[in-house]
Design a protein around this nucleic acid. Sequence first.
DNA 1: AAAATATACCTTGACAGACGAGGTATATTG
DNA 2: CAATATACCTCGTCTGTCAAGGTATATTTT
Lengths: 107, 107
Amino acid sequence: MSIASDLLRGNTDTIILASLTEHDSYGYLINKEIMAKTEAQMELKDATLYTAFRRLEKDGLVSTYWGDEEVGARRRYYSITEKGREVYEQHKAEWRKAKEMIDSLLV
Amino acid sequence: MSIASDLLRGNTDTIILASLTEHDSYGYLINKEIMAKTEAQMELKDATLYTAFRRLEKDGLVSTYWGDEEVGARRRYYSITEKGREVYEQHKAEWRKAKEMIDSLLV
DNA sequence: AAAATATACCTTGACAGACGAGGTATATTG
DNA sequence: CAATATACCTCGTCTGTCAAGGTATATTTT
């Protein structure tokens, strides 16, 4: 992992929600997909990931259910809620704005 | 101030260094300039600013001296060091990369 | 003349998010 | 049968932000 976690902070929840807008998913897979998409340059540490899930659940942005795997390790799936989709769009807008402003300050 | 501080986190030092690459400056002025450039949408809280100065100084990225105002409140000026310029370029590169990766993850 | 505002600096303590380190359990591969 | 991959989880530490408090000088308003 090469990107300072302070640069990701504030985007963790947004990234997870982004992943869930595509399909229901579970922790381990979300992480794998992020690593695949960023060529392993970015990774959510699992402690970070599960902390984020608790937060998202508490805020009603995701709902959760256990998978019915008959074989292999059990999976806890997450699903984005309607509120989650709204918040996701807001976060994305905020991110775009923050990006522009930071860029305008860097010479 | 409308931008979540978690989105700025990790860029505070970079933003201060950016400001100092243009000219030596002092806390109050740096903050005013940031507010002016971002139309007051972004602001570094002064506690955050002074914490950052201590950190930058400790790491040898800035040096400091007292202004010689004969009138008005005293000013503590900061000057970016050679090392500071190098670190600034690195931070900027990291920021560009983080930006790209986050963008690639948001749908 | 007193009060308010602007300039300018600073410290302390609380809080939130990231994550290292530790743990559990199942399935596959060497 | 040991190692690795899959899959989940918690606890405690660390770091950066910032609210709240403080000091001091100069100007503007009442």
